[in-house]
């Protein structure tokens, strides 16, 4: 299944194996990068449905959204934003290390990234538990304050759906990251896997960017 002898013809410093369907490593890398970008485009559309819902309901019920947003914990939200932005930095360092064939730093930065990601999920989980406790988790046990405007519950429906979908993406990312760490641990040649690390880096940055939109839309309504 490996390399039909085409890769050898290409001058390349890196001993990257080329799958049989590709002519050379450059074509393989080009295909992988493009595939990842298209995948991210589908992800944007996936979140796009929720953002549309948010735009519609917020336009119709600005007051309810304003009130509901005040029930979110700004401190925890900001802390999480910090964690995620830092994890993007460490992810970028992991990609950089992998491209330079540095095995231990790659693994180290990946583990740091995953710790930051875990921290984010832990805080998110705490926030969720708090919302359930306050009866602000949408569904049959939801209790709005007596003076709440229309749209109050809709805000929490969207809050949970959007941050929940984001958290699922984080969790999936963490799983992939740990698999990657195990692969790198066993492998001698980090550079063979630098494509993988780089593509995963794109995904991780995407997940960060989604949060960068979620944070102001959910936590920062009219907070001036």
């Amino acid at each position: 299944m490996r390399d039909q002898g085409k890769a050898a013809a290409v001058a390349s410093d890196l001993p990257i194996p080329v799958a049989h369907q590709f002519d050379d490593a450059r074509q393989q890398h080009e295909a992988a990068a493009m595939g990842m970008w298209i995948f991210l485009a589908t992800e944007i559309l996936f979140f796009g449905g929720l953002f549309t819902g948010y735009a519609v309901y917020r336009a119709v019920e600005p007051q309810g959204f304003h009130e509901a947003s005040r029930h979110l914990d700004l401190l925890l939200g900001t802390l999480n934003t910090g964690l995620l932005l830092t994890s993007s930095l460490t992810m970028a360092l992991a990609v950089h290390s992998a491209e330079n064939g540095l095995r231990r730093p790659t693994i180290g930065w990946l583990l740091t990234t995953s710790m930051l990601g875990l921290g984010f999920l832990a805080i998110k989980g705490y926030e969720y538990a708090h919302k359930v406790h306050e009866h602000l988790w949408p569904g049959p046990h939801f209790v709005a304050p007596p003076d709440a405007s229309r749209g109050f519950e809709q805000f929490f429906v969207l809050y949970v759906s959007m941050t929940g979908l984001h958290a699922i993406h984080m969790a999936a990312g963490l799983l992939v990251m740990w698999v990657m760490v195990i692969i790198l641990w066993r492998s001698r040649h980090v550079a063979r896997h630098s494509n993988f690390v780089e593509m995963f880096g794109l995904y991780w940055h995407f997940v960060d960017i989604v949060w960068i939109f979620l944070f102001p839309l959910l936590y920062l309504i009219d907070r001036s």
Binding site: T42, G48, G53, P138, P140, V157, S161, L165
Partner: peptide, 18 residues
């Protein structure tokens, strides 16, 4: 993906009463 999310929201509504 847009179909996926619209069906996903139906699921949230049926399962959790969103």
């Amino acid at each position: 993906p847009v179909l996926a999310i619209s069906l996903g929201l139906i699921a949230l509504e049926r399962l959790f009463g969103f």
